[in-house]
Design a protein around this nucleic acid. Structure first.
Lengths: 197, 197
DNA sequence: TTGAATGTTCTCTAGTTGTTCTCTATAATG
DNA sequence: CATTATAGAGAACAACTAGAGAACATTCAA
């Protein structure tokens, strides 16, 4: 379960290459991609990757097969999709990295119940990633504890030094002001995830 | 069975280093981080940490492995948050695993533009994870290509064998029927992610 | 079928990183 | 005062990583 630096870049190159072209690279293509002259070196990396279960090889042409590995934290960003327009292909196919969403040491997940953030696109059942924090900037969405027993997910503002304003994202609900000493911030919203089965 | 001061700071440094860069530090990096000149000293600390079960070492470079360290594909699910109610703590602290959202090799990300899925909680700017597929089940949300040049994200239904119905999630837009041969399915929505900075 | 392209297996080299020593210093303690 | 535990420097060596490239085997495509 330990990849060396070069083995990692090799694997990443294969993943990227496959994401872009839907086929496996040749040894020479990998070598070129890594700036290496010798395909023997590449072959050694591939052997190690195979031994560790990241790839399989059928000794054919473009025979490298990626094994599904739960450690990928990136996906290729293929483009934008707009209502009624074709997919704009993105030239330099970016990779979206989700690691930093998960990476923080003091983050946790809450499942949302109710519809107080519906206009923000946060629906009942969604997962929100919260970064533990005691402070927040105005306009951030926070987990706020009111009078030490009522926790809510709301957008926060500070109208003045002694007042905290918590704003739901739902037309049917009203913002409320609280004196600052009644509200404790428990965390700040850093992400929202929904999984469709 | 106690850690000395320096052993603790060493361990802390490794944890922090891993959290930031997702790889284990070199002895020299640890030495530098602790303000030590000699990697021999670091090695002694590591031996002690290993003996006491805090780390494992595979005598390679970057071979330090933290024992009992949270996987970075997972975050703890602390509970539910409802509008106006306290956080319901979940007893057996579940870990939410995002790996299977990212795991597939034939998945990619699109950034949404426009508001055709707004009632589904998918907003302009959101990232959607798409699994490449040519088929879909009724009621799934798919990337559909119409007449080979217009791609959209819509909920799909099959009213009858020859007809495909694409349904936007926006009250201001109307569902449309197409003859089946005009519509190509490019992928199925498997996830939606939004990151707040 | 045959030549070119590609994959496999080697040996060699260099540089980096990990391991094992010995030596010194300081503080706490009986 | 001697002893012990902690902390550090640094040298010598071993193990590992990285790369080059040659020779050979296999696969592909004309």
């Amino acid at each position: 379960m330990m990849l060396t630096e070069r083995e990692q870049t090799t694997l990443q190159f294969i993943v990227d290459f496959y994401a872009k072209s839907r086929k496996s690279p040749l040894l020479t293509e990998i070598a070129e991609g890594l700036g290496i002259q010798s395909k023997g070196v590449v072959h050694r990396y591939l052997s190690s990757l195979e031994e560790q279960g990241y790839i399989r090889r059928h000794q054919k042409h473009r025979g490298i097969e990626l094994v599904d590995h739960p450690n990928y934290d990136e996906l290729p960003l293929l483009g934008c999709i707009a209502a009624g327009k074709p997919i704009e292909a993105i030239e330099n196919r970016e990779l979206i990295n989700f690691a930093h969403l998960l990476g923080g040491t003091n983050r946790y997940v809450l499942q949302v119940k109710g519809h107080s953030m519906i206009d923000e696109g946060i629906r009942s059942g969604d997962l929100v990633v919260i970064e533990q924090a005691k402070m927040a900037r105005s306009n951030q969405i926070v987990v706020a504890l009111i009078d030490n027993h009522e926790a809510t997910l709301k957008r926060i503002k500070f109208p003045n030094r002694d007042t905290v304003r918590l704003i739901p994202a739902n037309k049917n609900m009203q913002p409320k002001n609280y004196s600052a000493d009644r509200v404790t911030i428990q965390g700040v919203l850093v992400g929202q995830v929904r999984m469709y089965t």
